[in-house]
Amino acid sequence: MPRTLIAPTTRLHTPWLEAHAEWGPGLHEDGFGLESTDDVESAQGFASWVARLNAKSDHATCRWIVEDERIQGGIALRHQLNERTGHIGYGIRPSARGRGLATWALGQILDQARVLTMDRVLLVCAADNAASAKTIEHNGGTLEETRPTEHSPVRRYWIELGQPHS
């Protein structure tokens, strides 16, 4: 199954809604840049949201993880450091987890960070999210610390961006 990272597009409205429905209610699709005020159900609202994501391209690179026209997840590279969420956030729809998609997508977005001449990036994941920690570590992440937050503890990882990581 060929996989690719693509910029958000209105062409994939229906597949995006299918992925969104699989996550269930709430705003937990990390990597999609979804805000509580975004109307993604209507064609017009979805088009506005996609336009907003693409307009932020000088501040963040948002990409959808797609296999055969099916959206499997999203990943976002913030060009400036956000101490709470880090430089990179990603999420994989529940039915697509465990197949290495996040590891692959993170490797791809790290290449984009190198193009932007970023020296290192911060990634933050829930302390109890072993799968995300493994994804980050596979891509060269070094644990800085586990830090308490108002909701639950998080792990903070740094990835140094020298040569591409295998």
Rank of each mutant, 00 (worst) to 15 (best):
residue 123 L to T: 09
residue 15 P to L: 05
residue 154 V to E: 15
residue 117 T to K: 09
residue 79 H to V: 01
residue 31 G to K: 01
residue 148 P to I: 06
residue 163 Q to E: 11
residue 97 R to E: 13
residue 19 A to G: 13
residue 14 T to A: 15
residue 115 V to A: 15
residue 99 R to V: 05
residue 120 R to T: 14
residue 42 S to M: 09
residue 74 G to L: 02
residue 122 L to D: 07
residue 162 G to F: 15
residue 87 H to K: 05
residue 144 E to T: 08
residue 127 A to S: 12
residue 143 L to H: 09
residue 14 T to S: 13
residue 44 Q to I: 14
residue 28 H to C: 12
residue 134 K to R: 15
residue 118 M to S: 08
residue 50 V to G: 00
residue 89 G to S: 12
residue 129 N to I: 01
residue 7 A to Y: 12
residue 74 G to H: 03
residue 58 D to L: 15
residue 79 H to S: 02
residue 77 L to F: 04
residue 66 V to Y: 00
residue 159 I to W: 07
residue 106 L to Y: 03
residue 73 G to T: 09
residue 86 G to F: 02
residue 25 P to Q: 13
residue 98 G to L: 06
residue 109 I to Y: 06
residue 137 E to T: 12
residue 3 R to Q: 15
residue 10 T to G: 09
residue 123 L to H: 07
residue 64 W to A: 03
residue 102 A to C: 13
residue 135 T to N: 08
residue 119 D to H: 14
residue 164 P to L: 11
residue 95 S to D: 08
residue 70 R to Y: 01
residue 151 H to W: 10
residue 102 A to N: 10
residue 158 W to V: 06
residue 108 Q to H: 14
residue 133 A to Y: 04
residue 26 G to E: 12
residue 72 Q to I: 14
residue 91 G to H: 02
residue 66 V to M: 04
residue 123 L to Q: 07
residue 21 A to R: 14
residue 135 T to I: 09
residue 98 G to D: 05
residue 65 I to Q: 03
residue 160 E to D: 15
residue 45 G to P: 09
residue 148 P to T: 10
residue 94 P to R: 06
residue 115 V to D: 15
residue 80 Q to I: 02
residue 117 T to Y: 03
residue 152 S to V: 11
residue 85 T to S: 10
residue 90 Y to F: 11
residue 10 T to I: 10
residue 161 L to W: 10
residue 139 N to D: 14
residue 111 D to P: 03
residue 17 L to A: 03
residue 157 Y to L: 09
residue 85 T to L: 07
residue 155 R to I: 04
residue 50 V to T: 01
residue 163 Q to Y: 00
residue 20 H to K: 11
residue 14 T to N: 12
residue 31 G to H: 01
residue 55 A to C: 09
residue 163 Q to T: 08
residue 92 I to A: 00
residue 31 G to P: 01
residue 86 G to V: 03
residue 49 W to P: 00
residue 120 R to D: 14
residue 125 C to M: 08
residue 74 G to N: 04
residue 89 G to A: 13
residue 112 Q to N: 08
residue 135 T to F: 07
residue 9 T to H: 05
residue 110 L to N: 04
residue 68 D to I: 06
residue 119 D to I: 07
residue 160 E to H: 13
residue 70 R to Q: 12
residue 132 S to Y: 02
residue 104 W to Y: 08
residue 145 E to F: 04
residue 33 G to T: 01
residue 165 H to C: 12
residue 95 S to V: 06
residue 102 A to H: 07
residue 140 G to I: 08
residue 110 L to A: 06
residue 32 F to Y: 11
residue 133 A to V: 04
residue 103 T to I: 03
residue 29 E to C: 13
residue 125 C to S: 10
residue 50 V to M: 00
residue 90 Y to G: 01
residue 154 V to Q: 13
residue 29 E to K: 13
residue 88 I to F: 04
residue 92 I to M: 00
residue 64 W to R: 03
